[in-house]
Design a protein around this nucleic acid. Structure first.
Length: 333
DNA sequence: TAGCCGTGGGC
DNA sequence: TGCCCAAGGCT
């Protein structure tokens, strides 16, 4: 089983820049943090820009945290950018500007949990670590346990299984971790697995059992109308705006209506500029076209003032508002 | 531990 | 069209 999966990996692995032997440990760490809950295709361009701009932890630590949040763009979960910046500052201060190589040192960095610590120790430093991510959990569930999906939450039995399956030799253990993860990402996928292309389909307990359905219903996350949706829209405004964003702009329906881009897609390219003029005309504050566009997106959500207040409080609590220069939105209008 | 935290592509 | 899901971490 190990040989078949590792051989499959040798011929089918994606050519990803953070897998290049010349990629720095910093590059690996940045990739792992960006890849937390975010697909590879969306990470790639941001990762490349990020490493060109900040080739090592010290470089990032010397930039304001808001720059990290803006460079993060629309990858999602922007607190990751803040934590990566904090991790860079900590590495500059306590690790001589280097990414530490041990699991425990990595685990102590903000935004680095058990998965990321193990992955960086393994993939950047060649260590023998038990890496357990969602792909590996799913492959183990099917191949070994014979179930369609892993348990709703990671448990001790899964970790023990992963430890038992990990090859003893460090180099082989690294390849095994990467190979099982890649198998889960490309073949043994959550939705419609490509069992016909699987190198270990003959050994799969789930297939042998006839591919039984999941025994529980994964609960989806609500989105429309939630604080998360509003928070994302406010964050987009904060990223687009420079320091000094006016609180009133976030709450004003007048600015909302006038800043709204034309619904006609043919005129959509013009929406930013016209929105900007409209916002300026509303007398609230001078602003930039991208700000007007993001304001318009926020207003179309029709959030109640109480919801906006709650979301802004959360962004202040997390430090995201201050980092982007929008700390002033805490003040009364 | 369960709930929260963004975003957009694919089915 | 919605809904599902993606190399999780933190509280």
């Amino acid at each position: 089983m190990h040989e078949e999966i590792i051989n499959w990996f040798a011929s089918h692995a994606r050519d990803l820049p953070w897998r290049d032997p010349d990629c720095s440990a910093w590059g690996v760490l940045v990739s792992e943090v960006m890849l937390q809950q975010t697909p590879v295709t969306r990470v790639l361009p941001v990762w490349k820009d990020w490493l060109l701009r900040w080739p090592d932890p010290a470089a990032l630590a010397q930039s304001p945290s808001g720059e990290a949040v803006r460079a993060w763009g629309r990858l999602g979960y922007p607190r990751r950018a803040l934590r990566l910046h904090a991790a860079a500052a900590l590495m500059a201060l306590e690790h001589d500007g280097e990414v530490p190589g041990s699991y425990n040192e990595l685990l102590s960095l903000p935004g680095v949990g058990s998965y990321t610590a193990a992955a960086v120790a393994a993939f950047a430093f060649g260590r023998r670590e038990t890496v357990v991510d969602t792909n590996i959990r799913r492959v183990h569930a099917r191949l070994i346990a014979g179930t369609a999906l892993p348990a709703p939450a990671l448990n001790a039995a899964e970790i023990r299984l992963a430890e038992q399956l990990l090859p003893a030799e460090p180099g082989q253990s690294v390849r095994w971790n990467a190979a099982v993860m890649e198998l889960g990402a490309l073949i043994c996928t959550a939705r419609s697995p490509k069992c016909g292309q699987c190198p270990v389909r003959e050994k799969c307990a789930w297939l042998a059992a006839g591919g039984p359905a999941p025994t529980y219903q994964p609960k989806g996350q609500a989105w429309a109308g939630t604080d998360r949706q509003v928070r994302g829209a406010v964050m987009a405004v904060l990223r687009a705006a420079g320091p000094g964003l006016q609180r009133g702009l976030l709450f004003s329906p007048a600015a909302a209506l006038s800043a709204a881009p034309a619904p006609d897609p043919a005129q959509a390219h013009d929406s930013g500029a016209s929105g900007s003029r409209a916002v300026e005309a509303s007398g609230l504050t001078p602003t930039e076209p991208p700000v007007a566009t993001e304001l318009a997106r926020l207003y179309r959500l029709n959030a109640e003032e109480s919801q906006l207040e709650r979301v802004i409080t959360g962004l202040l609590r997390d430090g995201l508002a201050q980092a982007t220069g929008g700390g002033g939105i805490a003040l009364p209008a």
